[in-house]
Design a protein around this nucleic acid. Structure first.
Lengths: 319, 319
DNA sequence: GCCAATTACATAACTAGTTATGCAATAATA
DNA sequence: TATTATTGCATAACTAGTTATGTAATTGGC
């Protein structure tokens, strides 16, 4: 299987499928060898019944990790084969209580011997190999229970992309992007107001010259997100966190968090002790981000924006 | 998956199937996450094509370890998806030469990034676990190439059964078995001759009292095989190995070999230097056994048996 | 140079699972 | 107590592979 050295781990699924097919193919021949009148796929159901005596279809399914229809089919086949009898007494008429027949129990004995031989063989293969397949499966099952493969890949992706994002200080060449990125989300959910235009058209005079800051997130050199600290003339707050925007195509890559963190660090450096922001509860990801950054809801300030329906603050001394 | 601790290694196939299903399920979601327009099962074919540039259906199948119809189907689906074009120029009109389209090559680039992330995740899971699943699969593939699971189980069974066989010295209580076991095979292939009757009816006077030996193979206390050393009045040979019989139900369990080895050891103990036997080439397993015991074909001795068409000898000094 | 064997692929039918859905029987609730 | 929700199972339709088989195109042997 030279192929898998080239494809890398990505093909783990394919490799497992081929490997499983190979094992089950030989398994079928082994049953034949021992003349045990049992189809390999019956084994898990058969095993549970020989342990438990009798059981219902759904309960067997949950024990062996199959779906209920799968067990339903297998029980039907086993009944046809005379290994199992259904519809034992049960007060609940929905349930099909299944048990081994005499013939089934007889097979159980022969199967025990086969199990011993197969067990010994697999143990010997395990001891021949340096890595223990059986243990590895057990460990993977445990690790994937803790966190699924999908979750792990999602996190890995976020991390990698985070590493590819660079947060830089504002420069005139980003003015177009600063305006465009903000207009994009504002006009999508609301309408652009006069106060917006002032800031977006003249970031230098309106924000920077007043002692504010603007940060730009670059992905492969291209601006994909912006945010600003605007100096406030207010006894309660030093700066407003405003004009936070991330390109829709780049959302979910943690860019907002990186911009926010940079802005917070800058505010601390500037000696700020309290930040303020306004937003709208329609923008759920943004509100979430602000919460994650440490902002808390406050009430009752006047705002120049028609769209603002939530106001938040953050005390920088806290951490 | 507590079940697998109870079932033991016998359920390796089932465990693998469940595990594989789990992995491929998440794999599908990962493709979705990366917005790669590729069905997971296409991956191996896609990979080969992006490596090789173009290739035929059968060659791809052999490279990825699928059956040819499987690749046939996948190529059809990929063609419908616009990733692949078939029937490139080829002098041999039977062959379908397949290559990636422009769209396919574009996806190849995005897929590369996904591969990097997945690879990193799987590597990290591998490093979290004590047993290395990827290596274990590789080792199992190698070990099963050397000797299949079926072969290993067959050998294990033979060994186990061999341990349950006990070879004992003849006793009067085994006279019935000695006669019955021999009559069974003789009458099946030939007819019972007078010389047979002499030995079978009076083993004590005909064999033992003349300085010969008889051995009985017991399985769970029951006689299932016999063989004898008959003293010969001959300058060339000391004993004849004769009246070897194993119950048909117990054949293939190495019983003949055990009986033969015991007889050879006894002959050595008795100071014999050369053994002789007669048989018929119809009895292939027997001839094979005699070869394995070290007997070599000889020609031209007179025999009292009509059925004998092969004669063999063994020099005991040799080992 | 023709007929048989082989090769390359397609198609059909099967396997061992799955999800989706429907139908009774039972439990919960207003 | 009547209605609604839930449970337990069966059935149908689907998936990703397989083997068996059929059909052209090519190769090989006499």
């Amino acid at each position: 299987m030279n192929l898998f050295e080239k494809t890398g781990k990505m093909a783990l699924g394919s490799r497992l499928r081929l490997f499983t097919a190979r094992i089950t193919e030989d398994a079928a021949k082994i049953y034949e060898l021992y003349d045990v009148d049992l189809v390999p796929k019956w084994f898990p159901v058969f095993f549970v019944l020989s342990e438990d005596g009798e059981n219902t279809v759904t309960e067997i399914a949950s024990q062996i990790g199959h779906s209920q229809p799968s067990v339903s089919k297998i029980v039907k086949e086993m009944t046809a084969g005379g290994l199992v009898k259904e519809n034992m007494k049960s007060s609940d008429k929905r349930r099909t209580v299944v048990a081994l027949t005499k013939k089934g129990r007889a097979i159980s004995e022969r199967l025990r011997i086969q199990c011993l031989d197969v067990d010994a063989v697999i143990d010997s293969i395990i001891s021949e190999a340096r890595s223990n397949l059986w243990e590895a499966l057990e460990e993977w099952e445990y690790l994937l229970d803790q966190k699924s493969l999908l979750n792990r890949v999602q996190e890995q992706r976020k991390q990698r992309e985070g590493r590819e994002i660079e947060i830089v200080e504002y420069h005139e060449k980003y003015q177009e992007a600063f305006k465009a990125l903000n207009e994009e989300w504002i006009s999508k959910y609301f309408v652009i107001e006069d106060t917006d235009r002032k800031a977006l058209d003249n970031p230098k005079s309106y924000i920077l010259d007043n002692g504010g800051r603007i940060f730009v997130a670059l992905y492969k050199g291209q601006p994909v997100g912006v945010c600003s600290l605007i100096k406030m003339n207010d006894p309660d707050y030093d700066y407003e966190l405003a004009k936070m925007a991330v390109s829709p195509a780049m959302q979910g890559k943690n860019i907002g968090w990186l911009l926010g963190q940079t802005a917070l660090a800058a505010a601390r450096e500037l000696g700020a002790s309290k930040l303020y922001l306004e937003s709208n509860t329609l923008l759920k990801p943004a509100i979430n981000l602000y919460h994650k950054l440490g902002f808390k809801k406050v009430f009752g300030r006047a705002t120049p924006y028609a769209r603002a329906n939530i106001q938040m603050e953050l005390s920088l001394g806290e951490d």
